[in-house]
Design a protein around this nucleic acid. Sequence first.
RNA 1: CGGGAUGUGGCUCAGUCUGGCUAGAGCGCAGCGUUCGGGACGCUGAGGUCGCAGGUUCGAAUCCUGCCAUCCCGACCA
Length: 556
Amino acid sequence: MIRRLTSGIYTYLPAGWRSLHKISEIIRGEMNRYHGIELRMPAVQPGDLWKETGRWNAYGRELLRFRDRHDRDYCLGPTHEEVITDLIRREVSSYRQLPLNLYQIQTKFRDEIRPRFGLMRGREFIMKDAYSFDRDDAGAAQSYELMHKAYVSIFEKLGLRFRDVEADTGAIGGSISHEFMVLAETGEDVIATCTKCTYAANLEKAEVRCEGPDCQENQHHPEQVPTPGMHTVAQVAKYLKVPESRVIKTLLYEADGKSAAALVRGDRELNEVKLKNVLGADTLEMAGQKQVEEWTGAGPGFAGPVGLKVDKMVADLELRLQTGWITGANADDAHLKHVDLRRDAKVDAYHDLRSITSEDPCPRCSANIRLTKGIEVGHIFRLGTKYSQVMKAGYLDEQGVEKPMVMGCYGIGVSRVLAACIEQNHDQNGIIFTPAVAPFETAIITINPKDDKVLNHARALYEELLAQNVDVILDDRDERPGFKFKDCDLIGFPLQIVVGAKGLNRGVLEIKERHSGQKHEIPLENFLENFQTVRKKVREHFGLQARTYATRIQGS
RNA sequence: CGGGAUGUGGCUCAGUCUGGCUAGAGCGCAGCGUUCGGGACGCUGAGGUCGCAGGUUCGAAUCCUGCCAUCCCGACCA
């Protein structure tokens, strides 16, 4: 399918390229159906454009920069907001020309720190990126809805089990965002889905509901207790013979150069994305040992909110509900007990800071939450006027008033879809391609191509299937049968037709379904008809599996 | 950038610690023959600057120094 040329950069071999082409065609079809118009932008982009939006500096080392012979700055495009906005500001000037949704399927380059998992996180990859331009927020919301529908339709057609989930907007900015996740055990993302309603969100985003009255003030006052060498919550809890949920975990961060402390219950996981959003920080990093010592006056493991001198201290909502906490004492080998947060510490604000768990209720309907792993293959954003404002992409409305266009952007990792399809659908014998993604939907295996009767029959069948627009490949290699069977299973052709002398003498051909392993013996007379029945059944299986997992959005 | 590891025929690796004769194996490749409904077998053969540069030594794939490359583990994203 693919061969690595160098770190994170791959050659697509004929079979792999054919699959990628099929994925692209499905994407094109749906994008066009939902009002997208295809164009093609350059991969090499001038640095000046990136300096205009400030991303020349903000994007970081992932942006591969270089200079031409005149010493001018250029970069390889990791995304195309700058280029498309530049184009549109030159070409569009009237409300009559809007809305507009332009897309391209193109090679992108991101100089990833650590490329891995083959196509899953390459440095060079193929991406479909679309950009919408609207007159106002209402229009932008409509464009967004259209793309959401297009994406649902695309992944259904690909035959993949997927979910659309609410997502954090991250560095690209904007307000609303959804990710499309292919469900697979090897996925790097965790998604939280409700077992009852349609709620689904990336773990980074999933809200944790926290209700209940604030606690009463604690009668006891903080008291220092020795905890020699107890650095972790687990150690402290065990040593003091209390559950981990009675301990407060104090995590220290450096946010845009300022110190920040985040407090969560000892048995909870801090969600760094939520923290970053709450702090409004561009960069967020765990404090190093030196900083911890400077801010707390103690080694790592003994930080606590009482008397802590940081620029900002935030706590998880849940911490309002109880008192009598165990916290670090900001002194080596000691903790405090009977801590009452509101009385003893200076907490700036309480926010939802922790990651949801399968014990938490659904934030919408209170039913159970299930955590699943997924691979992010698509992401849609509402950008607002972030780019149109700084790049002055405006239009004149009916009243002749200049207004910035309201933008959206929509990505699909085309090459990652291929990788995700394989991650989701495989067994010990190899790939189990969905019919839509397979390099060929059907393979004809000749048992002994030196037998003229076999070869001629296989060739005739091949031509007949082609004539019926079946996507078919003929394996007439002079190899042993076992070799070819294994090979076809490995590559993962969904349907395999076996043409052999034994079968022909009995007047039958065999069809095998790759996904189920089921074999059908089909008589030679009206073979094509029966083949189409099996083919339809297999296609329906994959179509159904995709639809079962998708969340339909409301609307027409 | 940190931490760990590896560079030997096309591929996967042994040999390196303990320096020594013509550098090996399996797979793959080429030829011939037998085989042929779930990755066959026999015979013959081609193919290697041992990552690069320098050093130690009578002698280096093996020891030393430097460089380069790749892979794996932690912070990014479609």
